[in-house]
Design a protein around this nucleic acid. Structure first.
Lengths: 266, 266
DNA sequence: AAGTGGTCTAGACCACTAA
DNA sequence: TAGTGGTCTAGACCACTTA
């Protein structure tokens, strides 16, 4: 993880070509050992397959040997080959279909993993001191956006909590959360003077389903004020809708200033 | 996948609570069948664990039973439990440590999967017609950004290719790619009049390692022109650095207009 | 009908780490 | 040192798809 200026890493990429971890098992009843070196960790097999693809031995669109074939060639169990190829398929490097076989992806549809930590974690992970300020907390009728996100009517009152998160005293992120009191026993507003709403939510509701959106938009007045930038400045917005059993309970919008990056490092 | 106005889905979330696929194996030597129902697919076990977490039986921070314990309780092999718990750990729902055990994550560090298709795929996936226009293609000295990304000196000439991608004739994405001729046999500029540079790259170099950044910034002049918006309009920028064997070969910046969203649907 | 990937099993050894 | 997760194996059955 790095921290240069405002930029920082908070995302990790699909794991590729890592080191073996639980490597080096099973030389037990080792057979007479053919001339070819034995590959018997799934990481080693993944690396070897990747190597052949990159080397052009298996060009884009080509079929590669079957699991059965590879397990014999590499001297390991088919399950091990399966694990390796499954990882590669999850990364979008290869495509697998029953009966047909495994093909090197012609179109590079890359899948990477996005880590979305709590903001406190994000800031402390940079080595900065985290602090939180409540800006506003009141009952409000939903905006059209909030109506859609939380699936409520225009007359349903919601709780709007606005706040900002600071890193070493500097504004890092401005946040607006709509809570649906009908779906969720909302606490006294006083709670949010101290505890960030997202943390209260996580503590209260355990595991939720969350859907995310990422977009760029101009900073609104409140957001600009919270971040200390001019209104209209581009901000990176992350929207999160938390649901319990398909019932949306909260709609959060987090705004980051222009220098902020989401970095997927490989 | 959905398409409402400008918004569209091109991302998928970590798979959770899906249906079994290769379900229903192994009632072979089924033992006398205890009163409790037998769960013997990893999807079923993952769903049951998730249910218990959501129901509060295993609150955030709590240790859950060991793989051994669960395999006995659910009547399946430990490997099956391992697969289920590994998936949950990959999603950030639980945290696993040897000797210690498995804990329900107290901090909701969610990991979701980001699909980054080629732009052609993205547009055609919306049901729109894809077209491509080359705007500019010339040798240039690198900007400081390009220098950093491609690890070259200020005197190294690079090839800069600027273009835009259209959906049903409307500007969808503006793109600027820097190619390093020292790392890559760059083609005649005429190639890029017809073929988008990313597709040429994918076709030519097979599998590369790619690192991504996402940020919001004001549209520059060329970008604004390509997208048909005012300069300074917030754009969502996706940066990609493609590398071969740790050697960066291309630095691409893709700019999307404000209405564009990356959607991670759950 | 046959071939390929997807999964489960039962057992084993290893890696890591708290006690 | 002991307990827990991480992995490999050899074999098996099943699901899906093309022929």
């Amino acid at each position: 993880m790095s921290y240069q200026g405002f930029t920082f890493v908070y995302i990790e990429c699909a794991d590729m070509a890592h080191l073996p971890e639980g490597a080096s098992a099973h030389l037990r009843a080792s057979p007479p050992e053919p001339s070819r070196k034995r590959l018997n960790t799934w990481q080693a097999i993944r690396a070897e397959v990747l190597r052949r693809i990159r080397a052009g031995e298996w060009p884009p669109g080509a079929l590669i040997p079957t699991e059965q074939h590879l397990s014999v060639e590499m001297g390991c169990a088919r399950a091990t080959v399966n694990r390796a190829l499954r990882e590669l398929a999850d990364s979008g490097i290869i495509q697998r279909r029953r009966k047909v076989g495994t093909r090197v992806a012609a179109t590079p549809l890359r899948r990477t993993t996005l880590r979305l930590p709590a903001i406190r974690t994000e800031i402390e992970g940079m080595g900065a001191a985290y602090s939180y300020q409540l800006t506003e907390c009141e009952a409000r009728l939903p905006t059209p956006e909030a109506m859609r996100a939380l699936q409520v009517d225009a007359q349903d009152p919601l709780l709007l909590v606005m706040s900002r998160h600071m890193a070493d005293g500097q504004p890092h992120c401005s946040e607006a959360i709509w809570l649906n009191p009908r779906a969720l026993a909302t606490p006294d507003a006083v709670v949010f003077a101290v505890e960030p709403p997202q943390e209260w939510l996580a503590r209260t509701l355990a595991v939720m389903q969350t859907s995310f959106s990422i977009l760029a938009e101009p900073a609104s007045g409140t957001c600009a004020l919270n971040l200390g930038v001019e209104p209209g400045t581009p901000v990176l917005t992350i929207e999160r809708v938390n649901s319990m059993d398909a019932l949306p309970v909260s709609f959060a919008r987090q705004f980051y200033p222009p220098k902020h990056r989401l970095i997927f490092d490989a």
